[in-house]
């Protein structure tokens, strides 16, 4: 299930990723805060029983997260993000990237 949801996200990225300015995100945000913000900002929708697919850092590899966030403003759900400051995005990205499935410390089951 997780695999499929990840694949769908990837497919969406490929379809919607335009030529917009790629944000050079470095994974040097506060991943601990990112974890908190991820829950606050993303898990409202990306959770079991919610409108979007359940999501966790281990759903994707670091490369996949990197690509996803390289132009996050083009994400289909970006309009639902509200006003997430770039600093927070960086923190969220650090968390997801830092605990991706192929990361040195993959997140434990949510």
């Amino acid at each position: 299930m997780l695999k499929r949801s990840a694949a769908m996200v990837l497919a969406l990225i490929i379809v919607f990723s335009g030529l917009g300015m790629a944000l050079a995100l470095e994974a040097d945000g506060n991943s601990r805060k990112g974890k908190y913000l991820f829950r606050k900002s993303c898990r409202g929708c990306h959770a079991e029983g919610q409108q979007a697919k359940d999501m966790s850092p281990v759903d994707m590899t670091q490369a996949q997260w990197k690509q996803l966030f390289s132009d996050y403003k083009k994400l289909p759900c970006y309009d639902k993000w509200g006003n997430v400051p770039e600093k927070d995005v960086k923190d969220i990205y650090s968390y997801l990237y830092g605990h991706a499935k192929d990361s040195p410390s993959p997140a434990k089951c949510k």
Partner: peptide, 15 residues
Amino acid sequence: GGVPLEEPFYENNPA
């Protein structure tokens, strides 16, 4: 994972 934890964040914590 059992009862989910809504982990709080404490702004003044170290990184």
